[in-house]
Design a protein around this nucleic acid. Sequence first.
RNA 1: GUGGUUGUAGCUCAGUUGGUUAGAGCGCUGGUUUGUGGUGCCGGAAGUCGCGGGUUCGAAUCCCGUCUUCCACCCCA
Length: 456
Amino acid sequence: MAQKPSIPKGTRDFSPVEVQRRQYVMNTIKHHFEHYGFMPIETPSFENSDTLLGKYGEEGDRLIFKILNNGQYLSKVNDQDLQSKNEYKVSPQISKRALRYDLTVPFARYVVQHQNDIAFPFKRYQIQPVWRADRPQHGRFQEFYQCDADVVGSDSLLQEVELVKLYDAVFSDLKLDGCTIKINNRKILAGIAQMIGAEDQLIDFTVALDKLDKIGADKVKEEMVQKGISETAIEKLNPVFSLQGDFATKLQVMRSLLSESEIGLKGIEELEFINHKVVKLGLKSATLDLDITLARGLNYYTGCIFEVAAPEGVKMGSIGGGGRYDDLTSMFGLKNVSGVGISFGLDRIYLVIEELGLFPDSVRAGVDVLFINFGDKEAAHAMDLVFRFRDNGIKTELYPEATKTNKQMKYADRNQIPYVILLGEDEMAAGALLLKNMETGEQELLQPEAVIEKFK
RNA sequence: GUGGUUGUAGCUCAGUUGGUUAGAGCGCUGGUUUGUGGUGCCGGAAGUCGCGGGUUCGAAUCCCGUCUUCCACCCCA
């Protein structure tokens, strides 16, 4: 072997067991999406650059993978821009397409493009990979799967309620108990900013506030001062920094704090409605928690925002996120269509389930039964039975070579095949099969019909 | 994008102040009565020590660059 091949950073190969387990997670999510009435769509891996650029903020633009044009792409570049080595000026001239960064923006594009064929409200789900030129870390990749469910064309807060229930249903089904669905509302954040006279600095303000549980109140205040927010304004935020108690209690504190802000109170009302309904319906294993510091960088959100934290003790960033966006489709020319959606981070959910040892044993690649190959004559007979078994829904294979039994048994063992059938001269003469349970080592001589019955 | 960290056989890792033919465990492979795996015993193959430069009589070991890994920022799923 000369130079070892490799794959780009932040990407992975998946072994048979890994693929099987990923499909288990994916199928669970998909099952619940469909159960809730979402319909599947798919969009291209890459979009026109202008569809994506400018939708995720400055940071987002930097993380979008740009695709180099084909042909003589350099010949058309403005010489001056090329000389100046200004990538912001050159990159649009040499790249007209980019890999999708998430599933929400391509969906908004889809809705606008197909608006005449869509019956609103439109509920779609989408499970596809996305790409980000981020620096890899644990649970952070350059290629990863998102599983999104979105509703467009409905202002009803019942959608938010349904999405909270959907999160709970999926995580409960995956036995991932103890997830926290954090919820907040951009209107509340806007209200606070308004109250402290920092309306123009909403983004700076929320980004700083978002770090509260990570760096503490003092550092957050420091950062806000740095961003030009006045000290007296920050003093007014003290109730926010020390917010405690259950959902209703926290909401009460925020209500009095925001009594002067119309938009802030609207946000409070929305959350109250959602919480009330969710409490009434009940959650199986997740907890809905009001997190006033939750901001989320994606700047197209306008109402409720969600983020899901893994069960306590697991070191992992958010395993899901979402929110309401009132204006996303207007960027593509379709006004007054509100959307709300959530996303499941498949790869992170996988890592959490793995860490907690929650994958069922039944999630396994490979067959149920292996026929040992004793030679041409025996193999020919075995093949008949292999197909008969398969027709009866039993995953079956015949070892392709008549090598030593030892080796064939090892193969079965390595591949965690639960049963092996020995069909040699003696068994053929008796018209029977020797079925061996690889876990217990027990063997029994059975008629083929009896084996088929056993697997039903 | 910023700072740090890692890279030695298929895998997990040793490798002493730079000094002969670079080691171990697991795995793989062959044998151990030619129809029986997961725990035995004996043997074997396998590494331009991430890649490219440099210092040196001599580099896995020191220096620089580069890629990769993981971590902290940033941001997020």
